[in-house]
Design a protein around this nucleic acid. Structure first.
Lengths: 336, 336
DNA sequence: TACCACATTTAAAACGTTTCATAAAGCGCC
DNA sequence: GGCGCTTTATGAAACGTTTTAAATGTGGTA
């Protein structure tokens, strides 16, 4: 019930409280004998540092804020997991904020975390947030942007190259001999969708005789995938694509359901299929799904890394943009 | 760049710093005119409370620790989301810790959070953790246990009644006229599995002529579900069950794949199927899956609620055990 | 006019650390 | 034996709040 402070430890060990602090922070400066006495006292009393006091004096805390668009989205869950792991390794606590995609909540979390005087913010922004982050920076709180193509290079960021991902997917389809390829995805105002399509187009352009048909969807859902899949089954085989690149795994799953259920079309024999995100279900679909994997956890770890670097560094630290390249995971749905 | 403190605000507003604090905490005590001047100054300087100092003086922080077994598990993700929402509403920050099911990491997080002097811990424990929590409690840090059948009633807890869930599932199958029911799940040392089976048994016992066959699995995975499903397809129709209750949705998904793919068995006509957890994919399976939904987010919200109550209350606060009843979500896979 | 009650404001102490300047002690060397 | 040097330990100040007791001002009442 009683809070144990350095003072109590000092009293029990028969030293001054400054010495206790030295044992904790700069053990080299204190003799082995004294050190032992102090450590014994700490052990005996079960002393645990009060980070608030530490932070107050030191001016810097040992926590990091993470604000994500939607913690329910596996991408962000994995990212949070990676960030938390790295933070814990460095002895930092991770404050989690879920903005649910709304600017108001995002701002609320930034305020809450600023009150906590976090070492810095990791944020996947909803809207225009640069002004807020600039203000925080002027207060000595750095930020790292997550998963966004940033015009403003004045902040550090981590992201994944969706154009490269699109190329990866379509190049793979071309490699396994497909030429009439369809892209399924939308709406294109989602920049991930347009980037993946852009990558697909580039890959197609490099190969003569290869064509790309774009089938637009209203959303990136299983249902939309099923709808497009049913439409493909209805087509005469001659005008069907021989491969489909879906903008995410949900669409791909829906496509797969429609194609295999209706039994007119075999995957991969008639139509090869590539998804995107490599969600847990991709590998356990009726036909295991080839997909593009994003290194989400690594993104989180790296974001923490950049943040700590920026926080340690002197004033004029150069922000860094780290762009990861996604990875192709080949499974049955495109097996030759 | 300079940190703005109450002192600066006081100077600009031409009042003492005690008055600034009063404006922030007990506005009734300060005249409207002064209040306005102070608020203007706060606005102008962009003053943000330093929670470390606040906490140091007040002895209590404005953050809550959450340690989960596996943040990648949708159940815990939803729970964390609910907890975070509720915490944010109350002006609290949520510290997230992922124990990955290992006791060492769990302990590490508890230490880290204790250093932060969190208001309390929310924890889904890995192993025997009562001693650690008892120690924390003696230090004035309460805990709420999450999702566990606790022998020790001395801690508050939130959990879901898996026995009730099992009954719910099987009663539904009985309601739609099925009598030869199979339970698919395992290993039974997982208490969720044994509880759900227990519920299933009870429901069966209440109806004469109903039988329950138990098909054991090594793990709760899609693959295992597919294995059992294939075995069922191989049986002569006469000795097949007319309904299956799977211990979770992954198993159910595997079962569904095997049953519908091999085309010998129709769902729900020949075999009705109920899963458990109501994961996102349940509703978009080839045959939309009837499942048992756990109120994960509500669990998280409630856990925060209990924690705050305990933290506000006087010394001898009675711990509370809240047990939620899961909910049946009927879809195609059992449609009459 | 003198006094009191009340509303408002102030000044100072306290929270538990870290840090810094300084003191004490031990030691080798001339 | 005194000197400087290094190692080790100390005490006090400081971080930014909240809180408490005391001070100040205002108006009403005797």
């Amino acid at each position: 019930m009683a809070a144990v402070s350095v003072r109590d430890v000092a009293a029990l060990a028969g030293v001054s409280l400054g010495t206790v602090s030295n044992v904790l922070n700069t053990p080299d400066r204190v003799s082995p004998a004294t050190q032992k006495r102090v450590l014994d006292a700490i052990e005996k009393l079960g002393f645990v540092r009060n980070d608030a006091a530490r932070q107050l004096r030191a001016g810097r805390s040992r926590s990091i804020g993470l604000v994500v668009l939607d913690i329910g989205n596996p991408f962000f869950t994995d990212l949070a997991e990676g960030a938390e792991d790295r933070a814990a390794e460095a002895g930092f606590a991770l404050l989690l904020g879920n903005s649910h995609g709304t600017a108001a909540r995002e701002t609320r979390h930034l305020e809450l975390f600023e009150e906590q005087r976090v070492r810095g913010m990791l944020i996947s922004p909803v809207g225009e947030i640069e002004p807020q982050l600039a203000r925080l920076r002027s207060r000595g709180i750095p930020s790292v942007l997550v998963d966004r193509s940033i015009a403003d290079q004045s902040f550090s960021s981590v992201s994944v190259d969706d154009v490269a991902g699109g190329m990866l997917a379509v190049n793979h389809l071309l490699d396994v001999g497909r030429r009439r390829i369809a892209f399924v995805g939308g709406p294109t105002r989602i920049h991930q969708v347009s980037d993946r399509l852009e990558g697909a187009s580039r890959a197609i352009s490099a190969v003569t005789g290869a064509t790309l048909e774009v089938l637009s969807t209203e959303a990136l859902t299983v249902l939309e995938g099923r709808r497009i899949g049913a439409a493909l089954v209805d087509r005469p085989p001659a005008v069907r694509p021989d491969a489909v690149f879906a903008a995410n795994d949900l669409l791909a799953t829906g496509l797969l359901q429609a194609l295999t259920m209706l039994n007119g079309v075999r995957v991969p024999d008639d139509i090869a299929l590539v998804g995107y995100d490599d969600i847990a279900f991709a590998s356990t679909a009726v036909v295991a799904l080839t997909s593009i994997r994003q290194p989400s956890a690594l993104l989180g770890r790296t974001a923490v890394e950049l943040l700590l670097a920026e926080s340690e560094a002197a004033e004029g630290h150069e922000p860094r943009q780290v762009v990861f390249t996604p990875e192709l995971v080949v499974r049955e749905s495109t097996a030759p």
